Simulated assay, not measured.
Amino acid sequence: MHSLQFTAQSSSNGMTERDFTVDGVPGVLWSPASPAAGSAPLVLMGHGGGNHKKHPAMSGRAQLLVNGCGFHVAVLDAPGHGDRPRTAHDEAEIAELFRARAAGEPEGPIVVRYNDHLAQRAVPEYRAALDALQELPEIGPDGPVGYWGLNMGTAIGVPFVAAEPRITAAVFGQHWPDVLAEKAKQITVPVEFDLQWDDEHISREEGLALFDAFASKEKSLHVNSGKHKELPRFEAHSAVRFLARHLATPATVPA
């Protein structure tokens, strides 16, 4: 049994936002302000490196899923991010990343190593959060669950989905294959994958190698021109439609 505690609540733009902790790990749960009767699907999201659970990318995606599909959406602060203190290891890795960036050296090896360390801590936390959230009557133990995370959210999400049979579908993208490819081979649920063709950090070959590693019979590759941080916003709408197809009834799939 995991300890779920709600610590704050507010409502705006058709969503109810509830801050919570699970075993001391801070998170946020967004839900419809006027929910339909019964339970609704849950989407767990992972935020990017250097960001936090309520980053505009997270709240914006949540609004699309909550208002467009009637889903619940939850995000945890990753270790060393948001409301969580940094360890000495966190500080050392971040300092090394900034040093490499200032020197014009490749960032990938440092990011891959550090994200793998964070994922080893975060995956058990996401599994505990899922256990706790499924005890809520508005979510329930048997409803479909999706995952959506890019960048560091993929670094955490791939091992999480590989270990978690309750996940029905997942959206990933924009990460190196080095550590993740072996875990991706264990994933068979439908996957949508985002890749920037002109990414200055992740080569096309590396991005394609991670996509190719997924064992899913249904997997879609979405490639757009542009650099790492230039992923088009319309890809968020595509991800919502993808998750709706696999988590919702046909009548609730957004156009």
Rank of each mutant, 00 (worst) to 15 (best):
K53P: 07
T87K: 02
A213R: 03
R121E: 15
F71T: 15
V73E: 01
S39M: 09
S11W: 00
G48H: 08
I139R: 07
G60Y: 01
A92T: 13
G70H: 15
V171S: 02
G104W: 00
Q5N: 14
S34N: 14
G157N: 07
V158E: 00
D90G: 00
R245W: 06
T7M: 06
A132D: 05
P85M: 06
K54F: 06
E230A: 09
G82D: 12
Q5C: 15
I187E: 02
P32K: 08
P159S: 13
A170W: 01
S34F: 07
A40Y: 00
L4H: 03
E138P: 01
H246A: 11
E105I: 05
S220W: 10
E138K: 00
A181G: 09
E200T: 06
A100T: 01
V253G: 05
S39K: 11
D199S: 08
R113F: 01
H81E: 13
F20H: 04
L42I: 10
W30V: 15
A184V: 14
E182L: 09
V66T: 10
L64P: 03
K219W: 07
S59A: 13
T168I: 01
R84D: 03
D199K: 02
F193T: 03
T154N: 06
R86D: 04
L210S: 05
W176Q: 11
E96C: 08
D198S: 13
H175L: 07
I187A: 07
F172Q: 06
S220A: 00
F172M: 13
F172T: 08
A215W: 04
A163W: 05
V112Q: 14
T249H: 07
S225R: 12
A209M: 11
S31C: 10
L64N: 02
H228D: 04
P250V: 14
G70F: 07
L118S: 05
A184F: 11
F160L: 14
V75Q: 10
L42Y: 03
S225G: 06
A122W: 12
D19R: 14
A74C: 06
W176R: 09
G68H: 02
E200Y: 01
E105N: 04
G153W: 01
A213Y: 01
E205D: 13
H237E: 09
V240G: 01
V112M: 12
E138D: 14
S39E: 14
P250F: 11
V111A: 00
H117E: 10
T16S: 12
Y126N: 05
A122T: 15
L97E: 04
A100P: 02
P56E: 04
V123E: 05
F211S: 08
G226M: 10
Y126I: 08
M45L: 12
G153Q: 10
P254Y: 01
